[in-house]
Structures are given as C-alpha cells and as structure tokens.
Design a protein around this nucleic acid. Structure first.
Lengths: 360, 360
DNA sequence: CTGTTAGCGCATTCAG
DNA sequence: CTGAATGCGCTAACAG
C-alpha cells in the first residue's frame, strides 16, 4: 500500500473518511490546547472572552459535537437515563414519557426508551443493555415479574439509581411511584353497585392469578363492603403476564360470561382495551350497553371518550407519575449519599360516562 | 423557574458505591493479563481452554459486565441502533419496533428508542442525542418536516447509516421504506364510490396542507378517476404537523361537515383515531353509521375491529416495514463501502367492515 | 497461545 | 487565565 512515512503523514492530514471533528481539532483551529477548548465549551473554569469566541467559531466551522462516549468514560456519567416500558402501544406510555422528560429535559439529560415487547427475557435484556451502556439512572414501568424483580435487585446492587412506576417493589434503594389502582377499582365497582348492580364480573385476569392485581383486589373489596361475595365464575381472563390484557381478552371474556346461567349485569374490565373488547362482544350478542350490561374500564385512554357509548373508566394521573418518578430519580442521581427509598401513591379518579349510565 | 445554561452540565456525585468490576479485575483474578481476558470473553483470537475457564469463573464471581462505553471508544461501534418515533402511543410504533428488533436482536444489536412528542425541536434534539451517543445507525419513522429533513441531511453527511420509514426522502445515502399510502387511500375511496357514494369528505388535514399527504392525494385520484371533482368544502382538519391527527380532529371534522348545505354521505378519515372520533360525532348527531354516513379509516389499529360498528380501514404492513428497514440498515452498517440508496414501497390492504357496509 | 504497547476523546489535577 | 501530563476501560497491532 503506502510507505511508512506516508502513513505517518496521514495522522496530521484529515483522513479521507470524514471522521467527526474532535476536541483536538477544535483546539488546533482556535490556536489553543484541547483542555482550554473543553473549558470554553463546557463553561467550566475561566476562559478569556476572546478565546471563548475563537473556540466557538471553530466549533461552528468544524460542526463539532462532543463525543458523549468519550466524555462518559472520563466523567463517569452520561447525562442520559433509560425508561423501560412494557409496551409502547399503550397510550399510558406516551404520557408517562412526557412527564419524565418534562423533568429531565430541563436538567439537560437525554431520555432513551426500551421496551419489553411483553417478554420477560426482553425485559432483563433491555435493563442489562441500559446498564451496560452506562445510563445514569433507570425508570422501570413494566409489570412486576419474579425474574424482572431479580434483575432489578441486581441493578440496584450495582448502585444504579432506579425508580419504578406502577409496580410495588421492596428494595430499599429503589423509589417507587404508583397510582392507587386499588382505590380506583374500588370506586368504579362502588359506582356500579350504587346504580343497582349486584352481579358484577371482572374481566381481564384468570381466577388463579387474580390476587396479584391491585385492580382486582379493589373490586373484591368493594363487593365485600356491600356485603356481597366474590363469585369466582365471574372472574375471567388470561393468566398474569408481562403484557397487558387486550381487546381480544375482553371480547372472549364476555362471550364466556354470557353462557353462565346467571350472567353478570355489569362488568368491570381490567383496562379500557379489555372494556372495549367487552363492549364489542356485548353488541354482537345483541346486548345493549348499559341497559343489558353496564361496562366500566380503567385508564381513561383517549379513545375511551369516543366509543359508543362512551366508556366509564378510571383515570390515573400518568404524566404526574412520570414527573414524580423523574424527580425522585434526579434526586438520586445528583445526591452525594444514599438515601432511604421513597414511595408515593397517587389518587385515581372515576369518570362516569354512557357505558354505565345512559346519557341524557 | 430559572433556565439552565445550554451546555452546562450538572455536577454529580463521586459515586460512593463500589465501582463495577473491570476487565483488569477479571484478568487479575484469572491470573492473566487484560488482553487475554478480553480474548476469552469475546471469543476472539486463541485462548487455551483452561484459561478460558478461569476467566469465565472470574467473570461470574465478579459479576463482570463489559463496559460498552469504553469498548465503543476503542472499536468505534456500539452495537446499538436508535429508532426515532413520532409518538409512541400509536399502535403503529409497537409493531414497527417489533419488526426492527426481529432483525437487530438476532444480529446482536441493542435497540434504543426516542420520541419527538410531536415537536420539531424534540425531533432534532433526539436525533442529535443518538448521534452524540454514537449509535451505529438510525431508523427514522417521524413525519417529514423541513427542519427534520435538515437534521437528517446533517446526519447523513456525518456518515451515520440511516433509513427512514414512511417518509419520502431525497438523500442519496439514506434508504427508505414506506407503505403505499396513496394506493391504500385510493382503494378505500374507490370502495366508497363502489357502494354508491358520490359526496365523500376527507377528514384530518387542513385544505391548505392537503397536498403534502399521500393519503389525501390517493383520495383525490380516486374521485378524479370516477369523474368527480374534489370539493374543498369537504376537506377538513388541522394543519399539517409532526403529530398525528386525533380523535378530536375527527369529531370536530364531522360537526363542521354536518353544517354544510349538502353534507357528504361518506367520510374517509386520515387515520383510525380520526375515524373513531368521526363515528362518535356522527352518533351524537343522531346519524347512523353506515346508513346515514359511511366512515373509513386508515392504519387498522387493533381497536378498529372492536368499535361499533367495526371500522372499515386500510392495513399497512407495519412489522414488515420495520424488518425491511432494519435489513437495509444492517447492510449499511456492515458494508465496507457506501452504496446507492434503496427505496421500497409496500402494498396496503383494504379491510371492509361494518362502518361502510352494514353487516349480515 | 499469551503478553506488551499504545491510544480512542475527553476532563481532572496540578503547574505555571 | 492557560497548558501538560495522565488515565478512564477497552482492544488493535504487533511481538514473543
């Protein structure tokens, strides 16, 4: 190829492959040493106005961007955090991310997202990836699973600031933010009771797994307070899984409940997708909502107000949870010493619409 | 609230927790030098079975994980790509990501996601962040905007492999994958024409911006082929924006169309959310779907089959687009030399349901 | 098969 | 206010 002398000269010349400009390039052009350019760019330490100007000219001319990778290696933080989401299709996710970014954008952090695609292996792989790439902190919004909890413990042992959203966690060094799903479910079912329903089904979880769901426990508590027994026949749905229950689950749920000798007159669905599937199934069976069967959901997805009839549901403060989690995380990231874990729970709000109470 | 200096970075703690094990730690424990441990771990070069075993013991004992940041600094690739999404709430996004990961997981790459939250500034900031953190490639699935295109050009000039999804792009070094939205819209409107409609509205874009939408142009072409004129009164919706049109836009659209002297008998909505909003508005006006007004959407979101009536819509092959984009990108990442840009377009499929043709 | 040397791009530390 | 030396953790390249 080329002589040794030749290859040596390449070092000083801009190589043919357009490599991005480095701090050294900027410094050279500005007639200073790299360190000075660094100071000028990061506004750290003292730099004369004149040098600052020359450096900023060079930055512009070379289209320089600091290499965050090299920087992290040196300063040990990336100025980036990771959010792990269960399933980005859920409208929940957008608002959550908005809430988180509202805090972290202002603090100068980048927010990266990863998803689990409803698989436990993906969950730990994604978590590991964030750790391996040295994000400064983690917000975990996936549903709790045994294996997921283990990875979480592993991560918190590594000292990576972590906060969870919507999942209870018993690690001392992990903060958590959640909505009071129990209370939301309790309120929804109490509403159904108050309008006269006595046979109320729960759609979205298998009877065996039901106790792992706070939404189910709120449902059961409301029945109990009304002096009613939980009827296991009325609990239908898929086994607990990292993924959410879907419209298909709601559809199938109603079909099976309708076969009972005494079908429920009202349905509390685990979430709005499930509720919408349930409404569809009711329609196909010729049952009118809410007259023949009242249906309530959970989450208040944007479409819930636009179904026919509009869906009674429980709204949880999503962006607020995201923002609260972000503040917890930022505290941990910037804290000089470890602190006790904090947990907060936010109230849910019942929104009554036409799927339980006929309008007008 | 005080504004934060643009590039000023927050000071963070000198981590009090014990630092994670490094390659040197592993090597020391295994009684070899770092390089040998590296070879054993990465299965590169020759390592005796015995040493390999000792290293793997040490890795396990120390709970060692390679520092991807340090590695990228050396090898110049992260084994990670970035996906830029417009709005993760769209069901589109999940399937797209699944399609992409299907390819990149197998290739051993991590996939990070960022979103624009419907803002152009966020779009370029997110793109920049990916670049600054040295991802190996980029998949950009946001709606085209002038400023976004500029950032894209900037990035491709930096030599970062990039492929776009769903947005036309004229950069020589950028591949692109899209569905044929024009054809999908054409088919949907042709369907409406075939069942006798002559006055067909388009809901989801302002008349001024309509020509920027392929979905609109397909609508117009179908009318034209049927010998009908486009009636500007029938085009309603918000200005073109990075965000999607929503159910609210669909709702408002029908309300305004209903006020016309001669309202359309059928509506083609820009997307399913808009269509669902339109259906709701029709119901509140006492119009029956499809008898008084037929409504078709676009995207075939999972809920589209579960509305009342179920929504006629156009399905685009989403995961397939994601996978195709991923293969293009992987080609570019692993290619030794630059190649001409490739574009592919996939067919959409009309799905007829009860919102245009009464069932049974 | 294993070790040595060097350096990726940056900022901390200490001298001027 | 600016500069020089140093090393973060890792691996390419070249000895042995």
């Amino acid at each position: 190829m080329t002589s040794i002398e030749g290859s040596k000269r390449l070092k000083t010349k801009p190589s043919t492959t357009k490599r991005p400009a480095t701090l050294a390039d900027v410094a050279r052009m500005a007639g200073v040493v790299a360190m000075t350019a660094s100071r000028a760019i990061n506004q750290s330490g003292y730099v004369s106005a004149e040098v600052r100007e020359r450096v900023s000219q060079a930055v512009k001319k070379l289209n320089y961007r600091p290499n965050m990778v090299a920087r992290q290696l040196r300063v040990r933080h990336l100025n980036a955090i990771g959010i792990l989401l269960p399933d980005i299709a859920n409208p929940f996710s957008t608002k959550l991310v908005d809430g988180v970014r509202q805090v972290f954008d202002e603090a100068g952090y980048t927010t990266f997202i990863a998803t689990t695609s409803g698989s436990i292996q993906q969950e730990s792989a994604s978590l590991q990836a964030f750790v391996d790439h040295r994000v400064d902190g983690l917000i975990v919004a996936t549903r709790g699973t045994k294996m997921g909890d283990e990875v979480l413990r592993d991560i918190s042992r590594r000292g990576i600031p972590t906060v969870t959203i919507g999942r209870p966690v018993k690690l001392a060094s992990v903060d958590s933010v959640t909505a009071n799903h129990w209370q939301g479910a309790f309120d929804a079912v109490t509403h159904l009771l108050s309008i006269g329903h006595r046979n109320i089904g729960f759609v979205g979880i298998s009877p065996e797994d039901r106790l792992s769901l706070r939404r189910y426990r709120g449902y059961a508590a409301a029945l109990e307070q009304a002096g009613l027994d939980v009827c296991t026949e009325y609990i239908v749905g898929p086994p607990n899984a990292p993924a959410f229950a879907t419209q298909e689950d709601g559809f199938a749920g109603i079909l099976s409940l309708a076969k009972l000798r005494r079908p429920p007159s009202a349905i509390f669905a685990r979430n709005d997708f499930t509720a919408i599937g349930a409404m569809r199934a009711a329609h196909t069976l010729g049952m009118r909502v809410p007259d023949d069967v009242a249906i309530a959901g959970f989450d208040n997805i944007p479409l819930a107000a636009f179904t026919t009839p509009p869906l009674t549901t429980v709204a949880q403060p999503i962006a607020e949870q995201g923002a609260a989690a972000a503040r917890f995380l930022l505290d941990r990231i910037t804290a000089t010493k470890s602190r006790a874990s904090r947990k907060i729970s936010m109230e849910c709000k019942l929104i009554v619409r036409g799927s339980t109470v006929a309008e007008r």
